[in-house]
């Protein structure tokens, strides 16, 4: 049954640091690379070198401009992937039981052998985390690299999601949010990590760490030069012209 587990023992997920992310797309490439060669149907591309390329990705990086009311605009690179929600609506809408959330670690997965490709789970997800593969006809989504994190054939340092492993700036952190002492829990607490679209009631596991406060120059060191008080004839002219 595609009912959600009442409670999961672990809550595996990602803490993504929007302060450190440089938008290089290494995580996008690593994700596509890893998930093309093992778990489930490969992530297909349509017309990849043509005029209208398209393809399935489990992770995409957006860039936003944020304009504060009283400071300079900042650019925020924003990776978007499955948040492995506690109350995942994509799971309960599934008519076949293909979509499920694991009770042991909270990972949301698709059993591709039971998926009919109706697309309703993608409609139910607020975050655009699911994409229907045009070749396989089944729903693809982030597996949190379930075939890496428990894989004893890999060196221990590689037993984390491909996106985390490949991030050159260390902006992506993987861990257990159910453990208050885990790295991701502590980072979230220290940095004020937040969930996306809480109004959708999905209770996401993943957290985003906000950009740190930027320094601002108090005033230009050249400012005094801009405020020259003219004296003598020039001063008289300045006052007169000001009165006209």
């Amino acid at each position: 049954m595609t009912c959600l587990p009442a409670k999961t023992d672990k809550k595996l997920g990602l803490a993504i640091d929007l302060d450190t992310c440089v938008g290089c797309n290494a995580c996008v490439t690593a994700c596509k690379g890893w998930n093309d060669q093992g778990y489930g149907a490969p992530l297909s591309d349509q017309n990849p070198y043509g005029a209208d390329p398209s393809g399935t990705f489990l992770n995409r990086v957006h860039s936003y401009q944020v304009q504060p009311a009283d400071a300079a605009a900042i650019t925020v690179n924003f990776p978007r992937s499955c948040l492995h929600c506690d109350d995942a609506p994509c799971v309960t809408v599934c008519p076949t039981g293909a979509s499920y959330k694991r009770a042991e670690d909270g990972i949301v997965l698709v059993n591709e052998d039971a998926c009919i490709g109706c697309g309703l789970c993608a409609w139910a997800c607020p975050y655009g985390a699911r994409e229907l593969d045009a070749v396989a006809g089944v729903m693809k989504k982030c597996t949190l690299c379930v075939d890496r994190i428990y894989n004893e054939n890999l060196p221990e340092e590689d037993r984390e999601p491909a996106c985390v492993r490949s991030c050159p700036t260390g902006a992506r952190h993987f861990g257990d949010f159910a453990d208050p002492d885990s790295k991701v829990s502590r980072l979230t607490a220290e940095r004020g990590g937040f969930a996306l679209m809480p109004e959708m009631g999905t209770n996401p596991v993943n957290r985003y760490l906000p950009p740190r406060k930027k320094d601002a120059l108090d005033a230009s060191p050249l400012a005094p030069l801009l405020d020259i008080k003219a004296t003598g004839f020039a001063g008289w002219l300045d006052r007169m012209l000001g009165k006209i």
Binding site: S54, V76, F78, P210
Partner: peptide
């Protein structure tokens, strides 16, 4: 603002799209 969680910092707008061609999300939703 709520979708990106950045609304508390200021007005959010798209600076650079995540991809320049179409995808399933754009076509379907």
């Amino acid at each position: 603002g709520s979708a990106t969680g950045l609304g508390a910092l200021g007005a959010v707008s798209v600076f650079d799209p995540a991809h320049t061609a179409g995808n399933y999300l754009l076509r379907e939703m």
